[in-house]
């Protein structure tokens, strides 16, 4: 049981890690900058090319990456508690599938980037309401039923995505594939994502101890004084909203939402009071680092960041799963 002081210390270290990852993102690239140069460019003491590159290109992209990574990790941690399933991730209930269908349809019709993001968000929202409505049905809302409904809706969206890819003209395919793999080079301004991150974290943190109890079982949690019915509704919508915002910004970046909560849990334990903010910081930092790699490793070619998170994530996750005592 981490005492409050230990938790605050761990969070302080993670805040420093996050700042370091953002700093590295500002310095790295075809125009390499030292820490001092990057700082002065960031603070606007520099009207040269460096200032424009740092303030105009790298900072928004790094912030968007941080916000998306944080939102996905937070949504993943919440979904794992909500479904009481360690294999749950933000995409398991079909939200990214819905967003994918929306985004690809818009691309097929030749819509602008902004409109594509709009339809992606609408698709995510529709998938969320569909899963919610179907899982609820006439009466109760059990975890297996919610999980199965979500997986089936996600599978349906997957089929629709494949259909759109089959029908799409060849010149549109690269853009669509980049979107599906997750890509921050087309990211919109980061303000909505940062706001969503703060809102979702601020709304869930006061209930973190209740979430600890919910992870142990719904009825036990209710017997210990948790208003389970309303809390899990709120968690479902907050986690879905976080996922929808992240996917709208950068496509369906894989593995952050599954891997980061597990990594954080292994390092710091399963107390949601520490796990939720810690996973948010780790997820944000990890995606910023992965994106910095994605745009520098094969420069001038940019790799989709989702490929890098998956390439890092798959072996790491298999290792953790293998190491874990039965």
């Amino acid at each position: 049981m981490p005492a409050r002081r230990r938790a605050l210390f761990a969070l302080l270290c993670l805040v420093l890690l996050a700042l370091a990852s953002l700093g590295a993102a500002l310095m790295a690239g075809s125009l390499a900058l030292g820490p001092g140069e990057a700082l002065s460019a960031l603070l606007g003491h520099d009207d040269s090319l460096a200032g424009e590159v740092v303030r105009g290109l790298r900072l928004p992209r790094a912030l968007a990456g941080f916000a998306c990574g944080g939102l996905l990790a937070l949504a993943g941690a919440l979904m794992q508690v909500l479904l009481r399933n360690p294999l749950a991730d933000p995409y398991i209930l079909g939200i990214s599938g819905g967003a994918g269908v929306g985004a690809l349809l818009a691309m097929l019709l030749g819509a602008s980037a902004l409109l594509t993001s709009g339809t992606a968000f609408c698709g995510a929202f529709l998938a969320m309401m569909l899963v919610f409505g179907l899982a609820r049905g006439a009466g109760s809302w059990t975890q297996p039923r919610l999980l199965l409904t979500g997986i089936i809706v996600a599978a349906g969206c997957g089929a629709a995505i494949t259909l759109i890819l089959a029908l799409a003209p060849e010149r549109q395919l690269p853009g669509m594939l980049f979107w599906l793999m997750g890509d921050l080079s087309q990211a919109l301004p980061p303000a909505p994502d940062l706001i969503a991150l703060v809102v979702v974290l601020a709304a869930t943190l006061p209930f973190a101890r209740e979430l600890n109890l919910m992870a142990g079982g719904m009825e036990t949690a209710q017997a210990l004084g948790v208003a389970v019915g309303s809390l899990r509704l709120a968690i479902y919508f907050l986690a879905s909203l976080a996922t929808a915002v992240a996917v709208t910004c950068a496509g369906s970046i894989g593995f952050v939402g599954l891997l980061v909560p597990h990594l954080t849990r292994l390092a710091l334990g399963n107390d949601q009071r520490l796990l939720l903010p810690a996973a948010t910081l780790v997820g944000g930092s990890l995606l910023v680092c992965a994106d910095t790699l994605a745009r520098t490793v094969a420069a001038p070619q940019q790799l989709p960041v989702g490929v890098l998170t998956a390439l890092l994530g798959v072996p790491l996750f298999l290792f953790l799963l293998h190491r874990r005592p039965a």
């Binding site: 360690p86 101890r209 209740e210 079982g217 036990t220 948790v226 334990g269 399963n270």
Partner: peptide, 25 residues
Amino acid sequence: GWLGQQIGDPFASSVLETVLTGRHP
């Protein structure tokens, strides 16, 4: 207080953490 029939815990928590959840109310 209510003692239910056992269900599994998908996340490994320690005995002390589990017992402390009783202090929640």
